[in-house]
């Protein structure tokens, strides 16, 4: 397993070029091209803020401006859920490669995570634009935590995707299951509502074991709220656990590796 992990490092060139291919290919032939990376989250935010801020009038003082608040959670969530959906199907989609070319299969799900991470990063300037427009700037000290949060999410997502992609090869139902599960997960995580709101607070027992809860809250504290980033112990704990989870996931992937070429 360690050997394979080391080998994976040698293949970073391949991951790099596959990620760039993925990005190039995705918008090839569309008029707006790369622009979609910006437009997609914008549209999503537009819809959500219309529904929640205008129709349901749920914006309280702490979460003003609501669009910026939501953006802080939706952006990382989109990265996470798209990675999972694409990554879990990546081995099956790349079946031809796995069967005919000798290269480490984990490259495929990993590429899915990284290419979506690029989209995530491309969304950040829009978030910044929103902040400037609403003159709601993050606190500098909190902002310093941002790369840490991204890193934790990266490790955690990689772990999830490795497990899911390996299992999806054998149990294809997972793909459909996952899509539904992600919807549930999205609403169960305080992304479009603040976790401290009255009536939401009681559910903290549900939030605590949810890894993405800690990520989202960290993002929100880092980018949105003015107070200090009080969530950092949980974040670091999640980071540590994510590393262990990633290793366990890689171990599982490694064990199932030989079966891919036959089953895909």
């Amino acid at each position: 397993m360690w050997q394979n992990l080391a080998r994976l490092l040698r293949y970073r060139g391949l991951i790099q070029s596959l990620v760039s291919r993925e990005l190039k290919a995705r918008y090839r032939g569309s008029v707006l091209g790369f622009f979609w990376s910006f437009v997609n989250p914008l549209l999503l935010i537009g819809i959500y803020s219309f529904v929640f801020a205008t129709i349901m009038k749920t914006d309280e003082k702490e979460t003003k401006p609501f669009a910026v608040f939501m953006f802080c959670g939706i952006l990382p969530w989109t990265w996470f859920s798209a990675s999972l959906l694409e990554g879990s199907a990546s081995l099956i989609a790349g079946g031809n490669l796995i069967k005919k070319v000798l290269f480490p299969a984990e490259v495929l799900p990993i590429v899915a995570v990284f290419s979506n991470m690029i989209h995530f990063l491309l969304g950040l300037p829009i978030l910044a634009g929103f902040m400037i427009y609403n003159s709601h700037m993050p606190v500098g000290a909190n902002l310093a935590w941002f790369p840490v949060i991204v890193l934790v999410q990266l490790v955690f997502t990689l772990g999830c995707v490795l497990v899911l992609s390996a299992l999806t090869v054998h149990f294809r139902d997972l793909r459909d299951l996952l899509a539904n599960l992600l919807t549930l997960w999205f609403f169960a995580t305080p992304i479009i509502y603040p976790y401290f709101r009255e009536g939401v607070k009681e559910y903290s027992a549900i939030f605590k074991p949810n890894p993405f809860f800690h990520l989202v809250v960290s993002y929100q504290e880092s980018l949105f709220f003015q107070g200090p980033l009080g969530h950092w112990p949980s974040l670091l704990l999640l980071g540590g656990l994510s590393i262990l989870f990633f290793l366990a996931a890689y171990w599982l992937f490694d064990r199932l590796r030989d079966s891919f070429a036959e089953v895909v």
Binding site: R21, K24, A25, R28, G29, G94, N96, L97, K99, K100, V101
Partner: peptide, 8 residues
């Protein structure tokens, strides 16, 4: 050509 991506 296994792994050629048609779009690029």
């Amino acid at each position: 050509g296994a792994g050629f991506h048609p779009e690029i």
